[in-house]
């Protein structure tokens, strides 16, 4: 076997192996709907008819009663903020689930006074495993909290500037917002009950703030009554969308998207024809070489 042929074969084999590995290896990124591991949200997209959105452009033109779960770990552009505004004002329900991301940018743009404090909410007593897993035991009666007595958050934050009438869930009296991050309550640090879920009417729609997006991840979804809350969200909307465009992406994710784009291109008539021609050319190359040799001989 010639060196060139050997190089070509080993390159093709390695490339194919790499593509197969990337294509089939599931995502392990936080809050990704195709991530089946503890930190993904595949279970929600499997258990409920939730549609992942890779761009806010894909929001429905008539959003009445539809629900969008937005986890803003990346900043929204001005155009995206306008899209969110339109979605809510036309009757959509935006569930803004944030802890340490850019949720306040959305709230500011929408003119709401409520804010995510961005400080970790700790509960040294009423917790699931340790103080980073606060139990949420004060839930106001609401269709969203039906059959829900007890939620468990995971490294959550709390809400500020929320009126009691807008509050749907509060942390326990023993919880506190750890401003200096030392894990111990100090005199100037606000103590519970602190609002963690709230509802705000806006235009024809509403904005629901959840101070911990980890509530939706696979490993948290089944703890205590978290599943009931998610069920209630899904049950009170005709269509549920989960935004994926404001999550940080890894190289694996970028590569997967690239491969998907390539596949989409190959599915077009142009791509299909190009691929077939390429295969044809490769298959016929030896014949072409043979003919060339023969013509040179004569």
């Amino acid at each position: 076997m010639g060196l060139h042929r050997f190089l070509a074969i080993i390159t093709i084999v390695l490339l194919i192996a790499l593509i197969i590995a990337i294509w089939f290896f599931p995502s392990n990124e936080d809050f990704r709907v195709d991530n089946p591991f503890w930190n993904g949200i595949k279970d929600i997209s499997t258990d409920y008819p939730a549609q992942p959105l890779n761009s806010l452009d894909d929001l429905p033109p008539s959003p009445q009663e539809t629900t969008l779960i937005l986890i803003p770990y990346l900043n929204c552009t001005t155009a995206e903020l306008k899209q969110l505004d339109r979605f809510v004002s036309q009757g959509g329900r935006l569930i803004l689930a944030d802890d340490y991301g850019h949720g306040n940018q959305v709230l500011e743009h929408m003119g709401l006074e409520a804010r995510f404090t961005g400080q970790i909410l700790l509960d040294p007593l009423v917790n699931y495993i340790n103080k980073q897993f606060p139990r949420i035991i004060h839930l106001e009666p609401d269709p969203l909290t039906e059959n829900t007595n007890n939620l468990v958050f995971n490294h959550a934050t709390s809400l500020a500037n929320v009126a009691m009438s807008d509050t749907l869930a509060l942390s326990s009296s023993f919880s506190f917002s750890d401003h200096n991050g030392n894990g111990i309550w100090e005199e100037n640090e606000p103590t519970g009950p602190l609002p963690v879920i709230s509802r705000h009417e806006l235009g024809s729609g509403q904005v629901i703030l959840v101070s911990d997006p980890s509530l939706f991840i696979n490993s948290m979804e089944t703890i205590e009554d978290n599943a009931n809350l998610i069920h209630n969200i899904a049950a009170t909307t005709p269509a549920l969308y989960i935004d994926q465009s404001h999550l940080p992406s890894s190289e694996l994710h970028h590569t997967k998207r690239l491969l998907q784009q390539a596949r989409s291109f190959l599915a077009t008539p142009l791509g299909t024809a190009g691929l077939v021609i390429l295969v044809l050319m490769i298959a016929l190359t030896p014949i072409w070489h043979k003919k060339k040799e023969n013509s040179e001989e004569t």
Partner: peptide, 10 residues
């Protein structure tokens, strides 16, 4: 995974 403040409860 990229650091996001949550912990595997398991």
């Amino acid at each position: 995974p990229i650091h996001v403040p949550h912990e595997n409860p398991a």
